[in-house]
Simulated scan of single mutants.
Amino acid sequence: MIISALLRLLALLAVFVCSAVLPGQAEPGSLPPMRAGQLSVSGLSSGGYMAVQFEVAFSASVMGAGIVAGGPYFCARGNLGTAVTVCSCTTGLPWCGVSPGGTNVSSLADITNRNAAGDRIDATSNLAGHRIWLFSGRWDTVVPTAVMNDLQDYYRFYVPPENIRYRTHRSAEHAMPTDFFGNQCSVLGSPYINNCGLDAAGELLGWIYGALNPKNGNTPAGRFVEFSQDEFLPDARSHGMAATGFLYVPPGCEGDGAECRLHVAFHGCKQNADFVGDAYMRNAGYNGWADTNRILVLYPQAATTFSNPNGCWDWWSYDDRSYAERSGRQMRAVKRMTERLTGQP
């Protein structure tokens, strides 16, 4: 036990020392104040769970979400054991407790309603106007389709069926699906982006925002801004967020970004800049659509901690018991970033 803990600590130190800043990046500055609108979110894996809880908690500010391999709001119930056996299959053991209906969606809806009644999250009535895009790979061994089916059932408590689009792929593993970059579709491995001939980023953005202009390609024409996340969460790394995050600014959104939209893309575990460099930011598929549709893309960054060695977002309370509420540290930090970019107080 002691040896295992020491090895894990050494691994964390190695990641921190070697990969704290992307190669070629200058010292991070401040996130620029802008006046974008139409806030939406998406995410993969732990980023999918983060996107769900962010959308539900701040439903008055968000208009829609795209979830790839995530699960219902508060699925883990603040318990790591539940997170890795009921809401995902991440124990490393040859068995998993995931089963159809296993997350108990009705009880999660009850918790959601109590949180809203206690003013810990926004009113659930806001969700009725949201647009939801869901994706599950039938070969996903980390967040099996049964969990995503429960997520669809959860959303049906609040969102009209016609506002929910649910896509599956018969041979997709646990990864962000693209039509131009990544491993083979059935592969589980870094950078957890797979070429499945399916443009998930384009589909989810189009479902949330409506018809989009065609993308010009997959090489970003805009620029990345590296900014300090410590401004939004002091000593961010100790709370599971990296010291820096990234904003993609397409050509049409220079200046104050007025009349531009804002999308927040939450990466998955082992997918932040420490683990995969700029692979997710450049190749998850968002930027080409951002270039032709005036969409700012915020790429906040999670980080490794001793209790979170894979750099996941906090969706089971590794840092904060209020992790799924408006007052959650990571939740509040990202919300403040979006307020800076939308000009909201």
Rank of each mutant, 00 (worst) to 15 (best):
F306Y: 14
R294F: 02
R294M: 00
A333N: 11
V334L: 05
R329D: 04
Q301L: 06
V297S: 05
D314A: 06
N287I: 06
Y299R: 09
T305D: 01
N287S: 07
R294C: 11
G288R: 05
D319R: 03
R332A: 14
Y286I: 04
F306E: 11
A284D: 05
G328F: 07
E325V: 04
Y286H: 15
S322R: 15
I295W: 03
T304W: 03
A333Q: 06
T304E: 06
Y318S: 13
A324F: 15
A303V: 00
A303W: 07
T304F: 04
T304I: 11
S317K: 10
A303M: 00
R326W: 02
D314P: 08
R332K: 13
D291F: 01
S322D: 15
G285P: 01
A290M: 11
Y299F: 15
L298P: 03
T292N: 13
S327E: 12
D291S: 09
G311M: 01
C312M: 10
D314E: 08
S322P: 06
L298T: 09
Y286M: 13
A324P: 04
L296P: 00
N308A: 12
S327L: 09
N293S: 12
E325M: 14
S307R: 13
A324V: 15
P300I: 05
V297N: 02
A303P: 00
P300N: 10
Q301H: 05
I295D: 01
W315T: 06
Y323E: 10
A284W: 05
W289F: 13
C312G: 14
S327C: 03
G311Q: 11
Q330W: 05
Q301V: 01
P309T: 07
G285C: 05
G311K: 11
A284Q: 03
A290C: 12
A284G: 02
C312V: 09
L298H: 08
D320P: 13
Y286Q: 11
W313F: 12
A290L: 10
S307W: 08
M331Y: 06
P300Y: 09
R326M: 14
A333G: 12
D319I: 07
G311P: 01
N308K: 14
R332P: 01
M281F: 02
I295R: 04
A324E: 13
L296V: 07
R321G: 10
W313C: 00
R329T: 13
V297E: 03
S322Q: 10
R336E: 12
R332W: 03
T292K: 08
A284T: 12
A324T: 08
N283T: 05
W316K: 06
T292H: 06
N283M: 12
G288K: 09
S307A: 14
L298N: 01
K335E: 11
G328Q: 09
